[in-house]
Write a protein that binds this DNA or RNA. Structure first.
Length: 186
DNA sequence: GATAAGATCATCT
DNA sequence: GATGATCTTATCA
């Protein structure tokens, strides 16, 4: 069986649907040396120019241009001068939306937080605007893990208090258990 | 356990 | 010149 790389059509759907269904899928990173893969356990959705927490709410700029592009493309940026965050663009072209990958489980070990995740996977600005549906360097796989809806919790997003009425939207999704243990909630 | 502060820079005003 | 889709370490209680 060939690898089940998530396709363009997978990401060309409502962002909340993509975000929820990404829980339990695998993020795969291939650099020159080898392959690292981990199960996604936490994501956040950023949806449209009306969402003040979404970078595209400030308009279409050189930086946010990628959010207006085709689904399935990576959006990597530097935050607080020290950490990278990995997102994947969702929904049709011209509609700016993306899913931030926040936490991953690799060999039973939880890598908690977008900055740490990118460090562990050696993700930086050179992986911005990569086509993640091509199965090259960075992509998502469905490895047949089924996650029941009741194992996924929805919470407000992190660090977006400034976003007004959008600050409290339950657009963060997290697996309630990982590695056999209950993990942090809220 | 909780909270505070420091590191450090691309992007936008 | 201000500001974060953060993480680590230190200091308190």
């Amino acid at each position: 069986m060939s690898k089940m790389v998530l396709s363009r059509l997978y990401f060309n759907r409502p962002t909340l649907m993509v975000a929820r269904s990404l829980i339990g899928k695998y993020l795969v990173r291939e650099n020159g040396k080898g392959v690292v893969a981990g199960k996604i356990v936490e994501v956040e959705a950023y949806i449209g120019h009306q969402d003040k927490a979404c970078h595209a709410s400030k308009g279409r700029t050189a930086r946010t241009e990628v959010l207006f592009g085709r689904p399935g493309i990576s959006y990597v940026y530097l935050i607080y001068g020290m950490y990278y965050c990995l997102n994947v663009v969702t929904e049709r072209a011209e509609f700016p939306a993306a899913v931030l990958i926040r936490a991953i489980e690799v060999d039973g070990e939880l890598i908690d937080g977008p900055g740490r995740l990118c460090r562990a996977f050696a993700i930086d600005r050179s992986l911005n605007r990569v086509d993640m549906t091509a199965g090259d360097k960075l992509w998502f796989e469905n490895r047949g893990v089924r996650v029941p809806r009741n194992r996924i919790g929805a919470f407000p997003r992190i660090g977006v208090d400034y976003a007004g009425s959008y600050a409290n939207k339950p657009w963060r999704f997290r697996l309630r258990f990982a590695g056999g243990k209950k993990i942090r909630e809220q």
